[in-house]
Simulated scan of single mutants.
Amino acid sequence: MSARRIFIAAVLTACSLVTACSGGNASDATTALPSGAELVKKSAEATRAVKSATFSMETEGTPAVPVKKASGRLSGTGDADGTIQIDVAGSLQEISFVLIGETVHFKGVTGGFQKMSRSQLAAIYDPSAILNPERGLVQLLSNALDPKTQAAEKVNGVDSYRVSATLSQQVLATMVPGLAQSVDGTLWIDKTTSRLLKADLPLTGGKVIVVFGDYDVPVQVTAPAQ
């Protein structure tokens, strides 16, 4: 056989192998992914049993929401502590808070702690609602519309499924105060525990990213010294 024929035969053989392998992998990857509806349902069920968690929320760009950044620890009993960065008339103000029962201890960058009621804090931002099964993550996942599994991938080093879904404005507002629209967002759900790890929420002017972690790590919130 001539060198030319050998070369052509080798190319055709290589192409057929690549095509066969590529097609098989794509098909296997697709069929291996669970449905989005199944994933958000399991995630809602898993979240309902959560006793505590940590969270962080941060904006990118200039979305029209007053709370630009927040982080803290959450207890299933409704207690919480952390910090909130809020836009007040174009100026960013950071507030530290400790929420115990119906009392909120709070302070700015300078000065000592003062007190307000839970309802007063809720008018700005109530992070304790996140783990409330009637208001927070459980409802967000239970009411997600048209969930579709996009891929299996790692987020923050954890094996997860990436799921797109339309998320309710009313429920999202418990995590992102001032939100005035439903969102076509992206969720990352832990493969092993089915708990929500991250939410990417595109908004007009930018986006909000919310990250959750340390599920069921004991949280003890104590009042600050006065």
Rank of each mutant, 00 (worst) to 15 (best):
V98Q: 05
I95S: 03
S142Y: 06
S164M: 01
P147M: 00
R73L: 13
T77D: 04
L121S: 04
S96T: 13
V210F: 07
V158T: 15
L141V: 13
K68Y: 01
Q85R: 14
G23T: 14
N143W: 08
S164Y: 00
V183F: 02
L99S: 10
T110Y: 09
K148T: 12
S117T: 15
L197P: 02
Q139R: 15
S128L: 00
V217I: 05
S52C: 07
T110N: 09
G24A: 15
D28S: 15
A14S: 08
Q226A: 00
K148A: 11
V221C: 04
F113T: 02
G24Y: 12
S160I: 00
L196I: 10
L145P: 00
S75W: 11
V98K: 11
L203Q: 08
I86N: 05
M175K: 08
L17F: 14
T54F: 02
A223H: 12
A9V: 08
E38T: 11
L92S: 10
Q139S: 06
T103F: 05
G90W: 04
R5E: 10
L172H: 02
N132A: 00
T204P: 00
L33S: 07
K69H: 08
I130V: 15
V219R: 06
P202I: 03
P202C: 05
G112E: 05
V176I: 13
C15I: 15
S194Y: 02
A44K: 01
C15W: 15
K69F: 10
E58D: 14
V210K: 10
P147Q: 00
S2W: 01
V88K: 03
Q85N: 06
E153T: 06
K42Y: 11
E38Q: 10
A165D: 01
D200S: 15
C15D: 15
D146I: 06
L121F: 09
K41Q: 14
D214P: 07
M116S: 11
L131W: 06
